[in-house]
Amino acid sequence: MNGSNKLAPPNSTVQSFLQKLAETPGRRGRLVFALDATASREPTWNEARRIQAEMFDTAAAVGGLEIQLCYYRGTAEFRASPWLTRAADLRRCMAEVTCLGGFTQIGRVLEHTLWEARQSRVDALVLVGDCMEENVEALCQRAGELGLLGVRAFLFQEGQDPVAERAFTQLAKLTRGAHCRFAHDSARQLADLLNAVAAYAAGGLPALERFGRRRGGLVLQLTDQMNRRP
């Protein structure tokens, strides 16, 4: 992704769909949104941050979600925001994040999400990253625990690193979630994937399926993977 790749205005059909979700009686969805902020993400970080903030602006505006922003960077830094319900607060939190060289800390993301899910319901975990440098077996154990708690993990991989792809696919399967790769230069692909998870968190699998039929493309990969889970 580069600075010249501008995200199109939110589709009116998407806005209408999310508005209907908000008007449906029921609880808010709760979503942990985790980002890899190590140095390898720096070339695409500014564009990705803008896409993610705009997507959650739309979701927060219709009142369907509570979002917690998490990120890791450096050798041992991991941070998590409070639960946020206002788009302005989420945008402020994201604007403060810059990239710093280091290693992946996906294990800490999973541990944190487990802790949150044991305190109160969490509908989904989203992780956006491009590599994986940890013990996969240990991560799979944590992912299995998340699956038992009903937390589905959506792992969105930037690029084509084969190690990350194998690990992300396993983690998704263990939580009955989904894994998708998106291109470095595709703002639209990432925006569609994030909007899809917002729909799932707010309205469950039926809402995700409806969204997938509207958007097509990579979003259909999410619904296909989740429908194949036992």
Rank of each mutant, 00 (worst) to 15 (best):
D185W: 10
T98P: 05
F33G: 02
G147Y: 00
E134H: 07
L100Y: 02
A59L: 14
P206K: 03
I106R: 01
L100G: 11
E77D: 15
R27Y: 13
A153T: 08
A207L: 13
P82C: 07
L110Y: 05
Q170S: 12
E133Q: 04
S40Q: 06
V136E: 11
D123F: 01
L110T: 02
V109L: 06
G150R: 04
M132D: 02
L148V: 14
G63V: 01
Q68F: 07
A8T: 10
T44K: 12
A143N: 10
T75M: 12
T85V: 13
D192S: 15
K173T: 03
G177R: 06
V128K: 00
N46C: 09
A187T: 14
R166K: 11
A61E: 07
R73Q: 14
T58Y: 12
G212R: 01
R121S: 07
E116L: 03
R30F: 06
L146Q: 01
D57W: 04
P230M: 04
L146M: 09
G212L: 03
E137C: 01
S4T: 06
R79G: 10
K173Q: 15
D161K: 06
G74M: 10
Q160L: 11
C131I: 07
G74R: 15
R41Y: 11
L194N: 03
G101W: 10
R210A: 13
L190A: 13
L218D: 02
T169C: 05
P9N: 12
G102F: 04
C99L: 01
G144S: 11
F78E: 11
E42A: 08
E47W: 09
L174F: 11
K173H: 10
R181D: 03
M55H: 00
H112I: 02
V126D: 04
K20M: 09
C180S: 08
G147N: 01
P9E: 05
P43I: 08
A80H: 05
S81A: 14
